[in-house]
């Protein structure tokens, strides 16, 4: 039972969060809400990466003399390195998109996607 709960929380949970973000992307009309949807998707993917690197009863992947004696297991360090990069990228993209949202607001005086589209096509 515990095994199943683990699997559900660690693998399907993040994927569900990702899908929540996709739902937001498809339904929302406000530029700012679209940015938040992107962020929710980011969160889902990052959690998923970390979940795939997880192992029960394992320690952090830092090699010390003490660890060599007890010979316990490491969690996989590669997903952790990847998730750091991915977080940094998503922070950069979010900062840029928020600046872009401000610029859009200055130019069109609205954050509604449909209205901006209307102004663009005129």
């Amino acid at each position: 039972m515990g095994e199943i709960i683990n699997y559900w929380t660690f693998i399907y949970g993040p994927l569900a969060i990702f899908l929540v973000g996709v739902y937001g992307l498809l339904t929302q009309k406000n530029l700012f809400k679209l940015v938040i949807s992107i962020n929710i998707m980011d969160l889902g993917v990052n959690l998923y990466i970390i979940a795939l690197g997880y192992m029960d009863n394992a320690s952090a992947p830092i090699y010390t003399a003490k660890l060599a004696v007890t010979s316990s297991r490491f969690v996989d360090p590669v997903p952790q390195a990847l998730v750091l990069t991915s977080i940094v990228i998503s922070v950069a993209v979010t900062a840029f998109v928020l600046a872009l949202v401000i610029k859009n607001y200055e130019k069109y005086n609205t954050l509604d996607l449909i209205k901006i589209k209307g102004i663009e096509n005129d």
Binding site: F18, I38, V78, P79, S86, L100, V101
Partner: peptide, 30 residues
């Protein structure tokens, strides 16, 4: 040239694509 709206569209579409790429990459690693 002050094309803020096209750029915003590009960000949204391309970020969705690259997140899918990241999901695929990490699954392949797994």
């Amino acid at each position: 040239k002050r094309g803020y709206y096209p750029s915003f569209l590009y960000v949204i579409i391309s970020t969705f694509g690259s997140l899918l790429f990241l999901l695929g990459t990490i699954t392949i690693y797994n």
